[in-house]
Amino acid sequence: MNDERTDAMDERSELLMRALDGELDAVERAAFETRLADDPDLREEWRRLSRAREATMGMKLRHPPEQVWDGYWTSVYSRTERGLGWILVSLGVIVVGGWAVWTWIGGLLADTSLPLVVRLGMIAMFTGVVILAISVVRHRINVLRTDPYKDIQR
């Protein structure tokens, strides 16, 4: 259902909502009761909506264990530190790793003791291993994030 389509509110629906949420004053409430008595369609909709309201009224959002709140702020703060840490580590890995790979490839291409095809093969093999490693790590991270059984102890 599209939100925009439902944003047009008619008087009858508004009346039903305000009645359900106890927002009618005494005069409005009396007028509503009269309309209910006279209009079977309205009465039927009121019954259905009241049932839905009663169902949610008997429920609440599940509370977490109280100790969750003790470490809440510490966890928030460490996330900001961790964020900065990850940025610096990633930057360092990119710079140092990039430099190492560049130097290695340069040295390999300059090494004329090996046939060119072997040198190109080594570069292709290294590139393939890096792609596979990245793919496996990314998959593991995704699984860890979404695995519903990750907290179950075997």
Binding site: M1, D3, T6, A8, M9, E14, M17, R48, L49, A52
Partner: peptide, 15 residues
């Protein structure tokens, strides 16, 4: 009004 219309649509779906 938008709050009420969304609430109405949600309650109807629930009903």
């Amino acid at each position: 009004g938008t709050v009420m219309s969304r609430l109405y649509a949600a309650r109807r779906a629930l009903a």
